[in-house]
Amino acid sequence: MEPSNEDYKLIPGWGMDADPENEPTYPMKKYTGDDHNRIHYERSDQQPELVEILRSNERPAITRVFGTSVPPSGFSGMIRRYAFQHSEDRYRHWIPLILADRINMLEGLIEDFKKGQIPNIIKERGLAVEWKHNRAGLIRKAVAVTLASLVLVSLFKRKK
């Protein structure tokens, strides 16, 4: 049973060795005791929720401000919505989010094509600068990737 009121202060020796200077988080944290007020503190106004915001289930309400950059959408959005049903402690939260990121990359390519825009992968990967400063390394990487791809293709054909 939890002690009622401040009965715990009656426990012999209660608090007698407390040392306010012994604060291992100092100077990162200037301890004020406000932690014991938990989430009861003065807050700013609430930012209106104009787009879908996924939120951690480890807090009761949305924060007073939040980013609105890329609301969840498409198949990756469905996976993200599933992920946010689980706490930050669970694999079921993080692994679906990583999966959603990879699917989102494919969705980005499809979106480009839909707009009639062919993504310039060479430009986006900044390969010009690699060519300028690390030509031999880039060629080595290209040869390695080509060889690995050929090995995979031949293995796949053999299995068939």
Binding site: T32, D34, Y41, S44, R64
Partner: peptide, 28 residues
């Protein structure tokens, strides 16, 4: 950082509780 939550008030501006609804382990 909001400057008002308990974490901000104690100088933990990197741990604000009112700037990131998507995770509790990290502020915005």
């Amino acid at each position: 950082a909001c400057g008002k939550c308990n974490f901000c008030k104690q100088g933990l501006f990197g741990n604000c509780h009112e700037s990131n609804p998507m995770a509790t382990a990290v502020g915005g």
